[in-house]
Design a protein around this nucleic acid. Structure first.
Length: 446
DNA sequence: GGGTATGATTCTAT
DNA sequence: ATAGAATCATACCC
């Protein structure tokens, strides 16, 4: 307090912030204690009200300076700081060491997983990309949808980061402002450094709450985006006609055992431009629907058998075995050839095998020819069964998987749909008489 | 717009 | 893990 002399007025008293002369505080004199208390109370009152006063800068500076130079200021200040610190510490102790908010952790994890937060993952979420690919089944429009999804995700990511940056900047600016203000005020009122720290913590918490709202909104946006783009049901597309043809051809040419091996599924998936799981779904649906609607399915089976025979006959005449109808393998390449050069063709098919396959196909058609008339849509039980017996002549093995549900070749006499065939053989030609008590077999919607 | 077809999902049984 | 069965949700066709 090098200029301490100036704090005294010419009358020997202390000038208060309003320019009034305060009573001189005489430490060494025997003044009544009540009077001293009164004086201290006045000073404190002035310290407390100083920030409430609207003063112009010059005035404020002058009065602050005057107050700072008061000889009692350090003593009073330390006492007040001590009292405040005790209060602050008690508050702080009750607020610190909070565990991390689990909700915030969930949001953070999700944003990272979705590729919105954290490092860029190739323009978006790879998981989402995979899901998109699976959902769209590799169809031609999948790439468009995928890029569209990624673009929208990138948009969300950018908005998120821009907003986050803004919040952080605002938080820092506000914190700095408050800290400066408090530091400035600490010269005239008792503000301990710890109190400033506490204030910073409070401000950061407030901004963290805003950040959490941003994260929540971003998560919601991502979820909506995902549901729009990746919900397979929403984006269901029928397979291409060619793909359906290929699947049906395989199904009806392996009617005795329509359980393609993994290799066959992969080959079908590749040829049809769909995923293996889609092939599995298709066969699952096909089997169950075939059983449920055996009449219509039989019509379809006849159609495919005829096509097979026609193709086989054409191939016998032209290529003499270049086409594959390898019903004996259960491996990739055992599919019927109906597409000229663009067919399923196993490189290890022998000419002999193909001839045999074509003979089988022809036998199949011949077996159908007996009842294949205009009303053969309801094939005779005999022809139906014969078809399956013909299939059984060349059963293909599908036991490579070792699946517990693999029908055994030796008992493959339509065991997979024996119930349905029994229903088809109920004598009146009507599989669905409206009073079917066959468990698990419902009247189809026709 | 309504009925049907169809791909996907879910649940259960094995 | 896989298949069967039921169901959902959408596409497609009239």
């Amino acid at each position: 307090m090098e200029d301490g002399q100036r704090m005294y007025s010419q009358q020997g008293g202390l000038t208060n912030m309003s320019g009034n002369v305060l009573p001189q505080y005489n430490m060494g004199q025997d003044e009544p204690s009540d009077q001293r208390k009164q004086e201290i109370g006045d000073i404190l009152q002035q310290i407390m009200t100083i920030t409430d006063q609207s003063l112009d800068e010059a005035q404020a500076r002058c009065r602050k300076h005057t107050l700072n130079c008061h000889r009692m200021k350090p003593a009073l200040f330390s006492v007040l700081c001590e009292i405040k610190e005790k209060t602050v510490l008690s508050i702080r102790n009750s607020q610190e060491e909070e565990p991390p908010d689990p909700q915030l952790m969930r949001l953070d994890n999700m944003l990272i997983a979705e590729g919105v937060a954290g490092p860029e993952k190739g323009g978006g979420s790879s998981a989402a990309a995979n899901a998109t690919a699976a959902a769209s089944g590799g169809q031609p429009d999948s790439a468009i949808e995928h890029s569209d999804y990624r673009a929208k995700l990138a948009q969300i990511r950018q908005i998120y980061h821009t907003e986050l940056e803004k919040y952080e900047q605002a938080c820092n600016e506000f914190t700095t402002h408050v800290v400066n203000l408090l530091r400035e005020q600490s010269r005239t009122r008792p503000i301990a450094p710890k109190e400033i720290e506490r204030m910073v913590t409070i401000i950061r918490k407030k901004f963290a709450a805003i950040e959490m709202q941003l994260k929540q909104s971003t998560c919601e946006a991502v979820m909506i985006l995902r549901s729009r783009f990746l919900d397979a049901r929403r984006k269901r597309r029928n397979f291409s006609k060619q793909a359906t043809e290929l699947l049906n051809e395989y199904f009806y040419s392996h009617l005795s055992n329509p359980y393609p091996s993994e290799e066959a599924k992969e080959e079908l998936a590749r040829k049809c431009g769909i995923t293996v799981s889609q092939v599995s779904n298709w066969f699952g649906n096909k089997r169950i629907r075939y059983k449920k609607n055996i009449n219509k399915a039989q019509e379809e089976a006849n159609m495919y058998a005829a096509k097979t025979a026609a193709a086989a006959a054409a191939n016998v005449g032209s290529e003499g075995g270049a086409a594959g109808y390898n019903v004996g393998g259960g491996q990739a390449g055992m599919y019927m050839n109906l597409n000229g050069g663009d067919n399923y063709q196993s490189s290890d098919n022998s000419v002999g095998d193909n001839v045999q396959n074509q003979v089988n196909a022809l036998r199949h058609v011949i077996s159908q020819s007996g009842g294949y008339s205009s009303d053969s849509m309801h094939s005779t039980p005999a022809s139906m069964y014969e078809q399956h017996m013909n299939q059984q002549i060349t059963p293909h093995s599908r036991s490579q998987n070792g699946s517990p549900h693999d029908p055994k070749p030796e008992d493959s006499t339509d065991s997979w749909c024996a119930g349905a065939f029994m229903q088809g053989l109920d004598g009146d030609g009507d599989n669905y008489d409206g009073s079917s008590d066959e468990p698990g077999l419902k009247r189809p919607k026709i």
